[in-house]
Design a protein around this nucleic acid. Structure first.
Lengths: 185, 185
DNA sequence: TGTACATCAGTGAACGCGCGTTCACTGATGTAC
DNA sequence: TGTACATCAGTGAACGCGCGTTCACTGATGTAC
């Protein structure tokens, strides 16, 4: 059946949105197109009138996740103490337990990277964060310093999510937050 | 056919060793037991006379990877400038391109962690690194400082592997290495 | 305005494939006599 | 020492399942007259 004019575009975006959630939460490889389409009230066959392959959806979903995170981060960087606000949010309990709406660098980009097929979109997402951080830095070597800050944030969040001991996981976040906030003084 | 006395133990270890390589290189989910056994000249049916499930092998392989990395790191920490040697190796081109024999925290532990089923063995592996680092640190808060160093190392390596631009990837490693080595002065 | 037709988003069965796991079987070795 | 038997690591076919992808089809809508 043919639907009203922008119906297809809406469905297209719904698929991308749901994929960006599932890819981050469950992993790209572990996310099936059949369950994904079913969760949107669609059948799996229709997928290929929207995308030519799963890989194309992965790319679009990574972009969408990047865009979503970018707008969230834009709000954070508009606050009073931008870098501190960003750091606190990045290393928050919320971010630790919400990979599905969090930074895709730890989930999608790293899965693609470990596979040996990194996407240029990962570069775009990372660069966006680095530039936002640089905007808050005074002095020299702001690019280099932003890279170190971002590495530390990503590593702490990854380790926090990887560890079984809940208190240990919390401590990794707390200690790293303390360190990063103090080193800016 | 029944084999000589320690034949089974040897096969057992060969499976674990190969699994620890493949799980790190290809991912746990993307590694099939059938190809794994075939690469050792065995048939897949025999797998279950060694392990009760794939999950059990994952646990054993993570331990094995941790042990292997621990002994490599022990050598690094026995050198002249232990922390600098460790940092340089962790952020080396070799480590970036050799996930299969590198730190399992970025590969196996993070895959388990993102899945929401982190293994206590990840805690053991991380703690081993933290203690080795602490042994090189003077002054106060050595535990906290070791956590920050390790987070930064892990994050930089992850981002370096995730990024498509090769020069950008190298720069992440270089900048982070510089930063960590200078901050110890 | 009313009717005939073309479009095409979405349907649902089917494709080959690899997955983890099971199971009856094999046959060289270790053990018992 | 020689023979009969028990063991059990490894074999290979088979299980149900979900994967990504294909394809002939449907039928409500948009368009043309």
């Amino acid at each position: 059946m043919r639907y009203s004019q922008d119906h297809k575009a809406q469905t297209h975006q719904r698929i991308i949105k749901e994929a960006s959630v599932r890819f981050r939460r469950d992993g790209i490889g572990a996310t099936g197109l059949q369950p994904l389409m079913k969760s949107l009230g669609l059948t799996h066959g229709g997928f290929y009138s929207h995308f030519k392959s799963k890989d194309e959806l992965v790319e679009k979903a990574l972009q969408a996740a990047g865009d979503q995170v970018a707008s969230v981060c834009a709000e954070l960087f508009a606050q009073d103490r931008p870098l501190e606000t960003f750091i606190d949010t990045y290393l928050s309990e919320w971010h630790k337990t919400s990979p599905h709406e969090g930074c895709p660098l730890l989930t999608m980009s790293s899965e693609l990277g470990m596979r040996g097929q990194p996407s240029p979109t990962s570069d775009v997402v990372l660069n966006a964060r680095l530039q936002q951080i640089q905007g808050t830095l005074a002095g020299e070597n702001t690019v280099d310093r932003s890279i170190v800050i971002m590495s530390t944030l990503v590593g702490a969040l990854l380790l926090s999510r990887s560890v079984a001991d809940v208190e240990f996981a919390q401590r990794i976040l707390d200690v790293t937050r303390e360190h990063l906030n103090h080193s800016q003084d």
